[in-house]
Design a protein around this nucleic acid. Structure first.
Lengths: 253, 253
DNA sequence: CGGTCGTTTGAAGTGGTTCAAGCCTTGTGG
DNA sequence: CCACAAGGCTTGAACCACTTCAAACGACCG
């Protein structure tokens, strides 16, 4: 439960790197962020991140995973995007039949951007504000990719594509190591994000595993072959084996 | 080619109504818009709307249809959204392998928002700027709907859903009359927006026609049953006829 | 250890694609 | 005013990608 000071510092450092990614951030502004004054908000897994008041609020993710999603009238879900440390997202009031709500997938820490800005001193404030807007915009641009994925890619390509996106974003904030990375998502989350059935997600993951492109199991991805996945997800490559030798699975750890 | 002054005025009036839709607009600001000073940009059908300089620019649509789209490496297309009179859209430089470009589907007229603002006087400027931002934001919110459509709806539902969206938006700007509305899109545009094949779009349209929900043919939609379409696109309604009496088509005009 | 949630696999069904051909509409030139 | 060409629409038949249903297995948690 209680994080060590070291973990706290490195989480913050990662979030700052994530903010910086899409454009510069003055050293002074970064320093100001390191000395965050306002309260850090914490939410447990599965809890909606929703403002009390009626207006949407911008949040800066420090640690943990969240997703933007919507529950349809028939109970099925659509996940729009995943929010990682360093990302900036809009949290909206629930119940308004709004298009989208923000839900924690693991315990998360985040900061309210408006509060943060109000506490920052003048020269830093503009700099931080610009960085937050850039990060929010980047999140929005990613929705174009989501649309292409759903509209024009096959199941295996969708899975490969999403794994690539998550890998690259995690890599940016230092959450990827040689032996893989943590991916606290179930196959159902993949299904809900990619417009597929859970069963088919499972089969697509097996195809990737059999082709030695990536091994995603039980919350961790390993054996990640970035170049191979890119080739795979862009061209059709209809010729790859997918049933293969049914019993064995040499790639299993 | 040369539009009458009446057509010009009514096009502008529609665009102002469209701007107003999502929130108020001071009477004085609307009056300022009626007296547009800057140049009106015109693009022929099929031309990309792209700024010369490297930075994206915001455009306010006055008349005609455009779409945000992307051409994939294999030549297929994904259409992200359709832009109608009164809408505010971002036009980006091409070639940057950017996610998205803006293309005219019919001859269009639009205005550069930055230019427009720079020419407006102070009290109006803020008001107009706010309205433009609201309209742009509304356009972005619509992308959530697009994702749900692609991720969690069947072909017929997607088509019904898109027709509903277009109808309601056209209705807002006074482009719907009792006997239907103009819809200058080919079935291929529908296919590219909905992630379907042209053939299947055709079959879905026939299903809607046979169920007397809407008759979309040759650039016009008629016999639009809004309530029926809503019911249809939300619930699954697996039981509706779709092959029906193959030869005849009573709804054909 | 027993329960629960997630993962894995098989078998059968279906929704959507692809290919291929014919038809309709609209625009153009004689 | 008619003939022809071109692009879009329509339909059929065959195929395949993905879904659904059902059941077993595995991991983790008290």
């Amino acid at each position: 439960m209680t994080q060590s000071a070291v973990e706290r510092a490195s989480a913050l450092e990662r979030a700052i790197v994530g903010l910086r990614r899409s454009g510069g951030l003055e050293a002074a502004a970064a320093e100001a962020l390191r000395a965050i004054s306002g309260p850090i908000e914490r939410y447990p897994a599965a809890r909606a991140v929703s403002p009390v008041a009626g207006e949407p609020r911008t949040k800066w993710m420090l640690s943990g995973w969240a997703c933007e999603m919507r529950v349809l009238p028939d109970g099925r879900r659509q996940i729009y995007s995943f929010a990682l440390p360093g990302d900036v997202v809009l949290s909206r009031p629930v119940n308004v039949s709004g298009p989208c709500s923000l839900v924690a997938l693991t315990p998360i820490e985040c900061v309210d951007v408006a509060h943060l800005l109000s506490r920052a001193r003048k020269p830093d404030r503009d700099e931080i504000s610009k960085a937050m807007n850039r990060a929010l915009h980047e999140m929005q641009e990613r929705r174009y990719e989501a649309i292409v994925r759903l509209g024009r890619r096959s199941a295996v390509q969708r899975v490969a594509d999403l794994l690539l996106e998550l890998h690259d974003r995690l890599s940016d904030v230092g959450l990827v190591s040689d032996d893989g990375f943590r991916l606290p998502l179930t196959q159902e989350h993949f299904a809900d994000a990619l417009g597929l059935s859970v069963v088919h997600v499972n089969r697509s993951l097996r195809t990737l595993r059999l082709n030695k492109l990536v091994n995603f199991r039980f919350g961790r991805a390993s054996g990640f072959d970035r170049a191979g996945l890119i080739t795979f997800s862009q061209s059709s490559l209809e010729s790859l084996p997918r049933t293969a030798f049914a019993g064995g699975d040499p790639a299993a750890a």
